[in-house]
Design a protein around this nucleic acid. Structure first.
Lengths: 339, 339
DNA sequence: ATCTCGCGGGTCTGTAACCGACCCGACCAA
DNA sequence: TTGGTCGGGTCGGTTACAGACCCGCGAGAT
């Protein structure tokens, strides 16, 4: 069942942020007793003015006393915190997971949504929405955003939205066609995202893996060359993370190749590269699209993947160390932190 | 147990108001399907611009679709409303109670807090807080506010607060000393309220009921006369509602008088007047303070009382028809509506 | 064919809330 | 006495948003 808090967060995100702030203040006061504003700034990491506004609010509502010697929680406030504590802990737990994930894998940011995407479709949508929300926040005018395929990214494409339209941005696929299901292809996803945000898009109308000669000749085509240039200049890359075996199958890899792959310890796949448990690249599929140098050059590489069965794969790709942001779900996050 | 929603309302009142607004919009859309903005304005009573802002918010978060033919709820939004419905109904139920109370007793406004003040102290405090909040909202500079005694009003005095200080306002008691417990006396309450809001106060240092001669001679005293003038010019009156018998006892009424009172059907007491079931005045205690003409003249008469056992008394006083606002609790409100 | 009404949406403007930044006097301990 | 911390006053810039008004569009009535 989806948590009440999560539902509220959909309807009043700013309100829930306020709630969190004010609860943290009260909780801190409950723990540390009489405290000064400035020391609270240190402990909680809020700006002083903001803290002051909230403390004034709490004072007005009789939840704290504020005297010349510092701020003190009232009995009423204490009662409130104690009754609120179990629910809040459960809710704030996500923030702790995010923080620990960021530290463990040296990420710039990580976003965790409650639940397990393998248990409930709702959670998959939440991951998509969270990724879309983050994207919208970091996109600057003129940015090119490269996106991969996959079911999680497809969900993100359905959930992204922008107001006003991102007329100055381009969405491009990281590679060409792959597999059968058109709705999960990078091309489709780039197109959907562009449509839903009012941005432009370019598609890469070539098969994903092809011979060296075909590669060379296709690159002579202006319509291909231009798109590839755009892809390689992406400031933002959004990629899914897949199980190595399943991705190899989707790519129709030959049986002996697959065996070789597994012998090399391949566990995960992202952006066409296969990784072993330690995050070492053990195989790659040549592409006309985004390749390793472009990946390492991109400023914002966002990995999007969830579900308890994917935790190992996610860890492998994160250990490789060139993704900056992870969007995942609670189930995967917890497994990630237990090695 | 105190509801999660109520606790949230303490920490983020504005946020909960937003939540209510947005939920109402979604719910309305769920019920009426495709709807236009203007017809929604009629149905929900919001301003159009506000509605638009919220609809834009809901659109951005993928909860509604908005097309040229009107606004439509998405499947996701529908799911959200359906999951949120039970909790919201319980919470919004208070609003319905308030509305019904206002209609039934021709009140300008009624405020209902969740719970039963006879079951939990917390609810008593909530009534006090709600009354204090309402007061703060309606007080204009220069107003004189007359308050009675009683435990509920005492609680309100503890909960009221104001920022900035109401330097231009005066709190006065409706009458003089009464009974033993100083903390429940009108004088004390007026003083506390003034202190907590930064307002002025004047006290009435005379016993509540006294002989005609004593009355006349006291009114010659300037210190008394001035305060009485202030009391009689009150724009705002805040009074509790009491059980007739208990109030008579607090006033040390003689046994035969009490018997006469009961024979007359006295059920409730407010502001020194005793009412029968129909709201007819059956007895009064002479006072140097606020009397009937002043009561009828006051622009804002706020009745504050809660608890299931007081429902009958509240109904009696409200039927008298000279109180404009009622602050009570859920238990009393429900009984009031069942005759 | 035209009119009209209700639809979403664009835009300007005043306002209120709020945050950053800076300063102040009071208090306390070294 | 001095330095650090306490709460609080104040000012200016920013932002979010509500109010008010207008627009073009399309469906249905005339």
């Amino acid at each position: 069942m989806h948590n009440l808090w999560e539902m509220q967060r959909l309807l009043i995100p700013e309100g829930m942020a306020d709630l969190r702030k004010r609860y943290m203040i009260l909780h801190h006061l409950l723990v540390s007793g009489q405290t000064g504003r400035r020391s609270m700034v240190q402990a909680l990491g809020f700006s002083e003015r903001m803290l002051r506004t909230d403390i004034e609010f709490l004072k007005e509502h009789g939840l704290v006393h504020v005297e010349s010697s510092g701020v003190r929680i009232t009995d009423w406030g204490r009662e409130l915190v104690e009754k609120l504590e179990p629910s809040m802990n459960e809710w704030l737990g996500l923030d702790k997971l995010e923080l620990e994930l960021s530290n463990r894998f040296s990420l710039k940011k990580s976003i965790v949504v409650r639940g397990d995407s393998e248990q409930s479709d709702w959670v998959r949508r939440e991951i998509g929405r969270a990724a879309g929300e983050y994207l919208r926040a970091v996109i600057n005018p003129g940015d090119v955003i490269a996106v991969t395929g996959g079911s999680t990214l497809a969900e993100a494409a359905e959930q992204i939205a922008s107001q006003p339209a991102l007329k100055q941005n381009w969405f491009v696929p990281t590679r060409g066609g792959l597999g059968e299901d058109v709705s999960l292809q990078a091309n489709t996803i780039a197109s959907t995202m562009a449509k839903r945000t009012g941005a432009q898009h370019r598609l890469l109308h070539v098969p994903d893996h092809l011979s060296e000669e075909a590669h060379q000749s296709l690159m002579q085509e202006p319509s291909v060359y231009e798109v590839v240039q755009a892809i390689r200049s992406s400031r933002i890359v959004v990629h899914g993370i897949g199980d190595a075996v399943r991705m190899a199958e989707r790519r129709n890899m030959a049986g002996d190749q697959l065996e070789a792959l597994l012998n090399d310890g391949a566990l995960a796949e992202a952006l066409g590269y296969y990784f072993d448990r330690q995050g070492k690249v053990v195989h790659e599929t040549p592409t006309v699209g985004l390749s390793m140098p472009d990946w390492q050059k991109a400023e914002q590489v966002v990995a999007v993947a969830g579900g308890s069965s994917k935790a190992g794969a996610i860890a492998a790709v994160l250990r490789f160390g060139h993704s900056h942001v992870l969007v995942t779900d609670e189930a995967a996050a917890k497994l990630l932190l237990n090695l």
